[in-house]
């Protein structure tokens, strides 16, 4: 691994160092096809309130976190190759009435390089443990953004793995995955009710349609009718709907407190409707008040707690970073 001995730090190459950042952006299409006439004809659109439901079902929330531990550049011949040491994790919380519990927690680490043909593991000693970074070569023509996106994608895949793996208690639980369902295996929706929850509004899917006002007219516990979204990059149609989690305070925009959910269209409208009703009826329970968290109410209690726990599992940022620095120092024969 001659390339590795040329690794040098490039501290400014990375963003979102240890900080969460908005990034659902790169997973959503510029202008997807939207068809509102699925559940209710457009002229009959109005906020829907699901019939009063009984005992809340179990919900399983799946989420991930990722971090760039440190950005690096390797010298590949006369070409500088971008890279980074990144850590990411994914986990799941199952919330039943009376008990919320973190049931899965996985942490992985990658050394991503804009190069070809490098693989294996780099072991970085950090105090009493050794941090194993899997080497991922993403291609010579890749730039800094691509390298960064790789970590994001690996996190999404880890989440997907978690949903798909049979061992997760998804049998009777409504699964709510953070972000779009792009990375989830298509058949995941067949075994259980699975929805992706998109909490930021980078795209306003109903923009320019006569349906837009209905969206902000939602009261907590209500949802819009289901509409179809067809992303350009994906072969699958998705059913999507908006739910209001909480009423925003007067100084917030009326979109605050509204989230979008989506599931696979192929699972059928009836299943999607059941899922939409359950999310509209019960997700508001999980929405924290403004004072609880910066991202309240859209970042739900279990999700916030899970992220906190996963981020904790990544290890102390400064400590990991310093360990990598001294590793590189020794690796390069600089000591």
């Amino acid at each position: 691994m001659a390339l590795l001995t040329t690794l040098r730090l490039h501290p400014w190459a990375s963003t979102w160092e240890g900080q969460p950042g908005a990034s659902d952006e790169d997973e959503e299409d510029e202008r997807p096809y939207v068809d509102p006439a699925v559940e209710v004809p457009p002229q009959d659109w109005r906020p829907l309130r699901p019939p009063a439901a009984g005992e809340p079902p179990a919900f399983m929330f799946v989420d991930g976190v990722r971090r760039i531990d440190v950005g690096v550049v390797a010298q590949d011949g006369d070409r500088p190759a971008w890279g980074l040491f990144g850590s990411y994790g994914a986990g799941a919380v199952v919330c039943r009435p009376g008990r919320a519990q973190v049931v899965r927690e996985h942490v992985r680490r990658s050394l991503v390089l804009a190069a070809v043909g490098y693989e294996g593991e780099v072991n970085v000693p950090a105090g009493s443990v050794v941090l194993a970074y899997r080497v991922e070569s993403v291609g010579e023509d890749k730039g800094q953004n691509d390298v960064r996106r790789e970590v994001q994608q690996r996190m999404r895949m880890l989440e997907a793995e978690l949903v798909a793996s049979g061992d997760a208690p998804t049998q009777d639980a409504v699964v709510v995955v953070d972000g779009p369902i792009t990375f989830l295996p298509r058949d995941a929706g067949r075994r259980a009710l699975v929805a992706g929850l998109i909490k930021t509004h980078h795209r306003y899917y109903l923009e320019g349609t006569p349906l837009a006002p209905w969206m902000t007219a939602l009261a907590p516990g209500e949802r819009t009718p289901i509409f179809v979204v067809r992303p350009k990059a994906s072969p699958d149609d998705r059913f999507s709907w908006y739910v209001r989690l909480a009423e925003p305070p007067p100084f917030h925009h009326s979109l605050v407190g509204i989230v979008r959910l989506e599931t696979w269209a192929q699972a059928g409208l009836e299943r999607a409707r059941a899922l939409a009703d359950l999310t509209a009826a019960f997700l508001p329970r999980f929405a924290p008040p403004m004072a609880w968290d910066d991202r309240a109410p859209n970042n739900l209690y279990p999700v916030t707690a899970l992220e906190q726990r996963l981020r904790h599992g990544l290890g102390d940022y400064q400590w990991v970073r310093r360990s990598i620095e001294s590793f590189i120092y020794r690796l390069g024969g600089l000591s």
Binding site: G98, A100, Q101, V102, Y301, P302, A305
Partner: peptide, 10 residues
């Protein structure tokens, strides 16, 4: 929140 099953805590 923990008692209602909304927030996972240790």
């Amino acid at each position: 929140r923990a008692a209602e099953g909304l927030l996972p805590v240790g």
